[in-house]
Design a protein around this nucleic acid. Structure first.
Length: 578
DNA sequence: TCTATATCACCC
DNA sequence: AAACGGGTGATATAGA
């Protein structure tokens, strides 16, 4: 495809950097930058002392120039730290490489070296890259020879970018690639903002972590003796079962089936199993040693945009506050004078399926505000005047059915999920097929397209190759998740460009913050831009959103986590939440 | 003792 | 062959 004419030039940019004061969670400290003009190859090198003296970029970044990088969010983070105005046009070759090859088996991954190898281009060795990376991460100071080596290394990356751009240039879908580039800027903006964390509570949890676990174990395991320190020993559990004459299900491998569902099932018959089950789940939920919190008490980590096959972000679960169990979100707390809002699209996947399939009944159900109950009514299982209170049980079953369809669940799994006979699950799934015929036709088409065409794609060009593996369920689910991801990207762009302070994206939600007297307005703007993003992706169809608001001095809390939060706070002598 | 795999826990 | 989509991470066990 033809590239726009960038009359002020195309600039390949790479920074070397390390986290400030060596602490993960802090913004980066740029060490050097190399810029290479494309296609002329004219190159300039800038060491950090010079960078920090520059009020602006040493190359054009206006509407007639293009800035090219590999993993541009990192470069944009450096721009942010240096106080530079971000470029108008960004092309991120990592993103484009992911998009181009998503779903294919790549021999060398999707890093810069992997991309070079994919195109048969020369590169430095991986070991050399690791060595240089380690040298940079020491944080200096670097000898003159080391400075030269780091600059040389940085330059090899822009040379690589040059080769890559030449190789990929004609395969790039430019308008959409530039939109994805704008998203990488939004990602940087969000990463640099981060999530405000209650450092005091975090410190207490970290300090008392071991004691909390020990205390929970001591309280319960004294009757069982199955823990060795803080680890549950399967063989001791087996001994306990033998001693107490309890038959226990096994996996095919012969090992004891240790999943929570089995514990729950067994606890029904053998009540003595219940306490150990509770203890196991409590302990397994504890994880926060690796959380990346900067010196300013903000959780910042790589959001890993486009990492998932569906195009979703995939931040590390241990580094990102939204990764671990929900009760730890109690650590999220607005700064004094500030408020937070967690805004998520209501039943996003259902709405996407309705709009993109063009299923009128499904669209009606979505617009009713309660798709699950509406489905029950449309299927004739609830009267028109039913409410979520009068028909709670029916609604729960139809809700489970909707979610099951989205994941491609079979009748047996659905039956187990709703604790009903398989016949009931079969009936629910059949009702879905009958009520939403157009949706099912659309879903069948996706499978045909994937099998015959070898490819599926979302509205703004994110695609997946489907020749290697991928089952029916993944194929049917892809359009919903991938378009949901497109929607989140567009909302992230709209919000950050409108000046809303976005703290984090969470798949179908955004966490934002604002000074208390601006919070209401910020929420209004956020809802409206998220609605606009849905119209853009769904050809005019509007998705609503739900808001959870928190004002200082309150902390954020997911209702699913209140009990655990209070239990732990109780152990370390902190006041419980109301 | 280290690494690869299996299993399970959690998230949306 | 199984039949719950997309993920990350911790832990236990098996094997080198």
């Amino acid at each position: 495809m033809t590239a726009p004419n960038f009359s002020d030039g195309t600039y390949l940019v790479d920074f070397e950097f390390h986290p400030a004061r060596g602490r993960e969670g802090n913004p980066p400290v740029p060490v050097c930058m190399v810029v290479r003009e494309w296609p002329s190859g004219r190159t300039t090198r800038h060491w950090q002392t010079a960078l920090h003296q520059m009020a602006t970029t040493p190359f054009p970044t206006g509407e007639n120039a293009l800035c090219v990088a590999y993993y541009a969010s990192a470069e944009m983070d450096c721009f942010h730290v240096l106080g530079w105005v971000p470029p108008v046009n960004v092309l991120d070759l990592f993103t484009e490489f992911r998009c181009l090859t998503n779903g294919l088996r790549l021999a060398h991954g999707s890093g810069l070296l992997g991309a070079l190898m994919h195109f048969g281009l020369p590169s430095i060795g991986g070991e050399q890259k690791d060595t240089m990376r380690d040298l940079i991460l020491t944080g200096g100071p670097w000898s003159p020879a080391e400075q030269l080596a780091i600059l040389d290394y940085c330059e090899t990356d822009v040379v690589a970018l040059d080769d890559l751009l030449t190789a990929m240039h004609d395969q790039i879908d430019w308008p959409r690639a530039l939109l994805r580039g704008r998203y990488m800027q939004a990602v940087s903006c969000i990463q640099m903002n981060g999530v405000p964390i209650d450092a005091e509570a975090l410190e207490k949890l970290q300090t008392h972590w071991v004691a909390i676990q020990d205390q929970l174990i001591a309280d319960i395991d004294s009757d069982y003796g199955v823990y060795d320190g803080r680890t549950f020993k399967a063989n001791r559990w087996e001994a306990y079962l033998v001693a107490n004459d309890i038959p226990w299900p096994r996996l095919e491998s012969g090992r004891l089936d240790m999943c929570d569902a089995t514990f729950r099932e067994m606890a029904r018959t053998y009540v003595e199993v219940a306490p150990i089950r509770e203890l196991r789940s409590a302990l397994s939920e504890m994880r926060l040693a690796n959380l990346h919190v900067g010196d300013d008490n903000r959780n910042r980590c790589l959001l890993s945009p486009f990492r998932a096959r569906t195009g979703r972000n995939q931040p590390s679960n241990s580094k990102f506050i939204f990764g671990p169990s929900v009760w730890l979100r109690g650590l999220i707390r607005p700064m004094p004078g500030w408020g937070l809002a967690y805004v998520d699209w209501s039943q996003q996947e259902f709405g996407i399926a309705a709009a993109l399939s063009g299923d009128l009944a499904m669209m009606d159900a979505y617009r009713s505000g309660d798709p699950y109950l509406a489905f029950a009514k449309q299927a004739g299982a609830a009267p028109p005047e039913a409410t979520k209170h009068t028909h709670e049980a029916v609604r729960e079953q139809f809700k489970a059915c909707v979610l099951a369809v989205q994941y491609g669940m079979g009748e047996a799994s659905l039956a187990a999920r709703i604790n009903q006979p398989v016949a009931r699950a079969r009936q629910l799934l059949e009702l879905h097929r009958r009520t939403y015929r157009t949706f099912w036709k659309w879903s069948d088409c996706a499978v045909d397209e994937a099998v015959l065409g070898g490819r599926l794609w979302a509205g703004f060009g994110w695609q997946i190759h489907t020749r290697d593996e991928l089952n029916d369920r993944s194929l049917r689910n892809f359009p919903m998740q991938a378009n949901g991801a497109e929607m989140l990207r567009i909302a992230s762009i709209l919000l950050t460009e409108a000046g809303i302070r976005v703290c984090a994206p969470v798949h179908d939600a955004l966490l934002i913050e604002a000074p208390l007297d601006e919070l209401d307005q910020a929420i209004t703007t956020t809802k409206s831009l998220m609605q606009e993003a849905s119209r853009i992706v769904l050809d005019g169809f509007e998705l609503g959103s739900d808001v959870k608001e928190v004002r200082y001095p309150d902390r954020y809390m997911d209702k699913r986590g209140v009990v655990m939060w209070n239990k732990v706070m109780n152990l370390i002598g902190e006041p419980a939440l109301a």
